[in-house]
Design a protein around this nucleic acid. Structure first.
Lengths: 219, 219
DNA sequence: ATTAATTTTTAGGCTAGACTAAAAATTAAT
DNA sequence: ATTAATTTTTAGTCTAGCCTAAAAATTAAT
């Protein structure tokens, strides 16, 4: 069944919210992320339930069905592949590509996305370190730690970010924190949980707990 | 002012129809190309006239204003650049790219299209030989002849096509007629105006007047 | 120069997807 | 265990962009 632009955006957001929990996703939380009023969301959820993309019970929130999840994954796949294209081929910075990929992810053509995948050499992660689902909807499960969980004096590699707002990414860029960087936690302040961090062999920089929480690393 | 998808499609089609004539473009001719009913077209034309993109007088047809023309040209620029990308970088054939480019042409980002332009090395023509408008809306005016106008025993180079339907392009491909081919008209049948044609030094092939009319060449 | 045929416009509807305001259900607080 | 606060749903509107049917204007034909 064909999906409209509005429906695709709902599916994507519900997918993201489902990831964190086994509970039903609340109307309000969707409304907030999609920037609509709750009444409009209720409306759409009922239509999507009829199409079999979500299970929905009044006042109990929604969850994606198998089908809904597959549609969501294919949109996410497209979004992330286009982001790789924008950064790798067109020379964008990682904080500039989100808006454009939001549009490109809705281009409908199975062959296009597979040719793009091949042109990009089958990347496994996007410019923010997020995994790219396969054509079959499989996500390479990479278990990363949040930098905030790394112990004192341990060394790790920056593998991704848990948030891809432009301001956050620009901050990382300014701090010289990029994908693949080798990091050593040289101090943890118990007061505010801020961290002192060595990047490669440079002199240490300070980052807040809030920032550390949104950086994903591998030991 | 922002343009909707529907509006962009109207502008594109009106632009194409304006090219052929100085007259007002008829409601019916637009309706046919855009696959809507005449009543819907009238409706849209009146809205677009209010926005200043067309001049419209009841029963007299429309023409694009300067502004309307510039919007149309920017869409055409995007369409043709994306077609180059699809053929040159992703390996599509020239008869496969139209539908996908119809979607990609609506992606909104000034920087994107300029970066794409540069990535593709500032192509001047698309895979069908159509000129790509510049950022300023200038079209490199290439005056080509229709192959049907070439005189007996003259030699010419295939520079483009006047029609880009998939069936036509597939026919050309089958006949080994591709952009840049050297052609010699070795026979013209007065009866049906069909042509006998040498491609490079191969043995001659026959093509109908209808086909010859849609092939653009340079002497 | 009327009449006939064609084209275009108007008028009134429809659907998707948003909205507001009010009603109903759920959750929290006394 | 009621009452209060919050969340969600229903009911009724609105706009963009399409439709059909009928009216009006234009063009063609006798």
């Amino acid at each position: 069944m064909a999906t409209s632009l509005a429906e695709e955006n709902y599916l994507k957001i519900i997918y993201r919210l489902c990831e964190g929990t086994k509970e039903g996703i609340s109307t309000n939380s969707i409304a907030e992320l999609i920037n609509n009023k709750a009444a409009s969301v209720t409306d759409m959820l009922q239509k999507m339930a009829e199409k079999g993309w979500v299970t929905y019970q009044k006042y109990q929130g929604v969850r994606l069905t198998e089908i809904g999840q597959n549609i969501a994954l294919s949109i996410i796949r497209k979004h992330r592949l286009w982001e790789v294209f924008l950064v790798e081929k067109l020379g964008y910075n990682w904080d500039e590509v989100h808006e454009i990929a939001e549009q490109l992810e809705h281009i409908e053509s199975e062959t296009l996305i597979n040719k793009l995948d091949s042109f990009l050499d089958f990347p496994k992660i996007d410019p923010h370190g997020d995994p790219i689902p396969s054509q079959e909807g499989e996500i390479p499960e990479l278990e990363y730690l949040h930098l905030s969980e790394v112990k004192l004096n341990e060394t790790c590699t920056l593998m991704g970010v848990a948030k891809d707002s432009a301001v956050f990414l620009q901050l990382l860029t300014k701090l010289n924190l990029s994908l693949g960087a080798r990091l050593e936690v040289v101090e943890i302040n118990t007061f505010d949980r801020s961290i002192s961090l060595k990047i490669a062999e440079e002199k240490p920089i300070f980052i807040s707990h809030e920032v550390a929480k949104n950086i994903l690393v591998k030991i």
